[in-house]
Design a binder for these strands. Structure first.
Length: 628
RNA sequence: GACCUCGUAGCUCAGCUGGAUAGAGCAACUGCCUUCUAAGCAGUAGGUCACAGGUUCGAAUCCUGUCGGGGUCGCCA
């Protein structure tokens, strides 16, 4: 069924026949649109065997193919490029067999294999922001890609529901909250908890401001000896430092030190200890406030259209991994230092020494990740495990995967960090302390409002009910947002400009949706005609062939997107297909065509395109609309 | 300082497992709706692919160095 493979086979045979040597790795490319042909074979690497000029070699292979390969109708040679023209019957046959295939786009790349995609993994002390949006959209879409490629998929969310940051919100609420609840304030739960996180940070800043000034000028006397030692060291460096960057960093260090010595932070740390000790009052407050956050997250998730098969909570998993540390010690993978702390030496692998367990026997971040990796495997026996986490954790995952490998875990090779770039604002990085974060809920609402305004302005939605209209605005707004984010290569950092907002024209989600809606309009006007059962026209126009060729590529694009974990591949493809179809739409009037075979063929092509656009958009988590 | 990563049109991005004259969209300008949805289509203009070397028949793509942006280098997560 795959043309490319068949053609490669033919070329390999041609080379062997002509030059008496087996061809190694024959590669094909799609012919540059400026030249005639479907596929291009570059002959330069063959010159050593053919002992001839590029032109003559290409000519010889071309002739051989034309005689022996049934699918090749013609060829032309430009320098060392052999452009092969395939018979148009092939495209007509493809259209005939696939135009109404509801499974088109589903592949078997991963059939029989199971993969876990862990994404979202929020902290429960504040609402989601633009950075989380990229994470969530990527995770959801990558899970869709794996499903489309035939994998069984488990979508997991590892919720960071414990720790010092949550205690900050809790403490601030306790001190300043006056018993506020989501019900009493009408605030979404995650926003209410986030509000108290900000309250905490503000109170902390107020408390520490005078001390920080003292400390920076060298006049601070910390209460604890430990802090005194650190302070003396940093302040000493500060006095020596000349470089501006270094000075700023040392000042930040001092700031951090002062903050950690503040009474507010000490109270927070005490609260964390109380939580770990299971003091009922603290546990109750923790449960209550996390409950608020979860109900808020649920709404955001639902609106974004993301979902999970399994939730893990760090309050349950944070103690995992200690027994694995023991195992690692016995295997000699880890070693213990005099103070009792446990380490792994990764210097031979180009990394560093890494702590895996504190001297007092408590876990660090990586300890629980080691344990959780085992837990995931025990529960699901996945062949692959994808972690959708920002690229600031590249090093962490490098270390984690290496440790799992050294521990001899069979699943270690299937672990993959989908490391995505940060989302920048025109002002630079988002910083919660400076209040420059873009809130996820606000962002979605703005997009939907914008979609509504644009739709009303164009005035093409007469006859739709109120409910249908709201669904339309929701779909268009989210489509613009999702497409904007997903069309960029996940690995790269990207820029988001809220001022200019997101366009609805050009390379956008609504553009692809529009193409789909147009086709639906045509198909509606063809209702009542029997266009489905007639023959396919084999005398296709160039633009028709081009559209079919684009459709033909789709399953390969799905596989590529899946193996690259890159929804951007699908987004770019959707633009390509939509643009190609729109050109066809412009050149060929479907319903006005008088020849019934030609007309019906075009209807099938339109139907096929609509199916594929819908499939692609769905992979991106975008819903299609029938009218817009 | 060490390591990782990015640098393509005014702006946002494709192209990167080496192949032909480096592509889209936005912004600017010009056309196309008595015909299936103009959220569309066609066209004009816009490039030392950061810079310098190297490998190769061939480099935006691979290697080295320089410059610039970002990240990491916690017994934080």
């Amino acid at each position: 069924m795959n043309l490319e493979q068949a053609l490669i086979q033919h070329i390999a045979e041609a080379i062997e026949t002509l030059y008496g040597q087996p061809a190694q790795s024959v590669k094909l490319e799609h012919t540059n649109p400026d030249f005639a042909g479907d596929y291009t074979f570059v002959v330069f690497p063959l010159l050593r065997i053919s002992r001839s000029t590029p032109e003559a070699t290409a000519e010889a292979i071309g002739n051989h193919l034309k005689q022996h390969a049934a699918i090749v109708s013609d060829f032309n040679v430009v320098k060392g490029f052999l452009n092969l023209v395939l018979k148009t019957d092939i495209y007509a046959d493809f259209l005939k067999s696939q135009w109404n295939n509801p499974q088109f786009g589903q592949t078997n790349l991963g059939s029989g294999k199971k993969v876990m995609v862990e994404y979202s993994s929020p902290n429960t002390n504040k609402p989601l922001h633009l950075g989380h949006v990229r994470n969530n959209l990527l995770g959801m879409s990558v899970a869709n890609l794996y499903k489309a490629a035939g994998y069984e998929v488990v979508m997991a969310n590892l919720v960071n529901d414990r720790g010092i940051h949550i205690c900050k919100s809790m403490l601030a609420w306790q001190k300043f909250g006056n018993g506020e609840t989501p019900e009493s304030t009408g605030m979404k739960g995650d926003h209410l908890v986030g509000k108290y996180y900000v309250v905490f940070e503000n109170a902390l800043r107020e408390e520490t401001l005078p001390t920080i000034e003292l400390a920076i000028s060298g006049k601070w006397t910390p209460e604890s000896d430990n802090a005194q030692t650190k302070y003396t060291a940093i302040y000493g460096q500060l006095q020596q430092a000349t470089e501006e960057k270094q000075i700023a960093k040392l000042k930040d260090d001092i700031k951090e030190l002062v903050r950690n010595q503040s009474s507010l932070m000490r109270e927070t740390q005490q609260m964390l200890r109380d939580w770990e000790a299971g003091i009922p009052e603290v546990i109750n407050l923790w449960q209550t406030m996390n409950g608020w956050v979860y109900s808020g997250f649920e709404k955001t998730y639902a609106r974004l259209g993301v979902a999970f098969d399994q939730y893990y909570y760090e309050s349950n998993t944070y103690k995992l991994g200690k027994d694995v540390v023991e195992e690692g010690l016995q295997k000699g993978v880890f070693y213990r230092k005099d103070d009792g702390s446990v380490w792994i030496d990764l210097r031979e692998d180009g990394l560093d020494e890494k702590l895996v367990l504190r001297g007092d026997g408590t876990s660090v971040y990586i300890t629980q990740d080691i344990g959780t990796a085992d837990l995931k495997y025990q529960e699901h026996h996945v062949d692959q495990s994808i972690y959708v986490v920002g690229n600031e954790q590249d090093y962490h995952f490098k270390v984690l995967f290496l440790i799992m490998k050294k521990l001899g875990r069979p699943f270690a090779n299937g672990m993959h960090h989908l490391s995505y770039g940060m989302v920048d604002l025109p002002s630079g990085k988002m910083k919660s302390r400076e209040g420059t974060v873009v809130d996820a809920d606000d962002l979605v609402q703005e997009m939907v409002d914008e979609a509504k305004a644009k739709t009303i302005e164009l005035g093409k939605t007469e006859g739709l009910t109120e409910t249908q209209l709201n669904q339309l605005y929701e779909s268009l707004g989210l489509s613009a947002l999702k497409f904007f984010i997903l069309k960029v290569d996940p690995r790269k950092r990207m820029l988001f400009n809220p001022q200019e907002s997101i366009d609805f024209q050009g390379d956008t989600g609504p553009f692809v949706q529009y193409t789909y809606a147009r086709i639906q309009s045509i198909l509606r006007s063809a209702e009542g005609l029997d266009w489905q059962s007639t023959d396919i026209n084999t005398h296709l126009l160039p633009i028709e062939v081009e559209t079919i060729q684009t459709l033909y590529r789709y399953p390969d694009e799905v596989n590529k997107a899946c193996s690259d974990s890159s929804p951007a591949v699908i987004a770019q493809y959707c633009i390509d297909l939509a643009r190609t179809f729109n050109r066809f739409y412009n050149e060929c009037h479907i319903m006005r065509e008088t020849d019934p075979i030609v007309k019906n063929t075009r209807l099938k092509l339109a139907h096929f395109t609509a199916h594929t656009l819908k499939h692609g958009l769905n992979l991106l988590g975008i819903q299609v609309v029938e009218r817009m």
